[in-house]
């Protein structure tokens, strides 16, 4: 269920920046439009999927990130296999929506520190001015030409999701940038 084989196996600390891989962590991609889909997600996961763009919702156990009008990503480090099986059986098997386990597709990097947005802005076209003051905001954009999903946890602390095959390259780039700041 969880991504046991970590991609980066490293943790770095700089004067105003801390970088580490978050693992093990479960990630689930949900796609659906039907009313039953939203009802089932609420019943099984106890979370209301965000319908406003670039936002997220959370409960004590998991976070749901808006990816597009009919696509979300759930991530958590407490989900057990039974709950995932229930989500799959009650949504995907009944054709209310699509449920895909993407735990091993995405690598989660936690970055915190006062120079966080300076680091990202070194090679990212996204305007972080509103994003960084809105706790819970999310965005999909590119950093150094690499697709990423960013979740703002507040107080200059973000979870950044990157595809596994790009994760080591982005990790090296982030550390190169952190050394220059």
């Amino acid at each position: 269920m969880d991504n046991i084989n970590t991609a980066i196996k490293d943790k770095r600390e700089y004067s105003d920046l801390n970088l580490k891989e978050v693992e093990p962590i479960t990630k689930i991609n949900l796609r659906g439009k039907k009313r039953e889909f939203f009802t089932k997600v609420g019943q099984v996961l106890s979370v209301i999927l965000p319908t406003e763009s670039n936002t997220s919702t959370s409960n004590q156990e998991l976070s749901a990130l808006w990816l597009s009008p009919d696509e979300w990503m759930i991530y958590t480090n407490t989900m057990n296999k039974e709950i995932f099986d229930r989500v799959f059986k009650e949504i995907s098997s009944l054709n209310y929506g699509a449920v895909t386990n993407v735990s091993d597709q995405w690598v989660c990097i936690n970055i915190s520190g006062d120079k966080l947005y300076e680091l990202l802005s070194m090679s990212c076209p996204f305007d972080f001015s509103k994003f960084k003051v809105t706790k819970g905001s999310t965005t999909q954009t590119i950093i150094n030409h690499i697709d990423v999903i960013i979740h703002n946890l507040g107080d200059n602390n973000i979870n950044l999701f990157v595809r596994r095959s790009f994760s080591n390259h982005l990790w090296d780039w982030l550390n190169d940038g952190a050394n220059l700041l």
Partner: peptide, 11 residues
């Protein structure tokens, strides 16, 4: 129309 204003390089 879904995400808001973004740079052309994302499209």
């Amino acid at each position: 129309p879904y995400c808001g204003v973004r740079d052309q390089s994302e499209f």
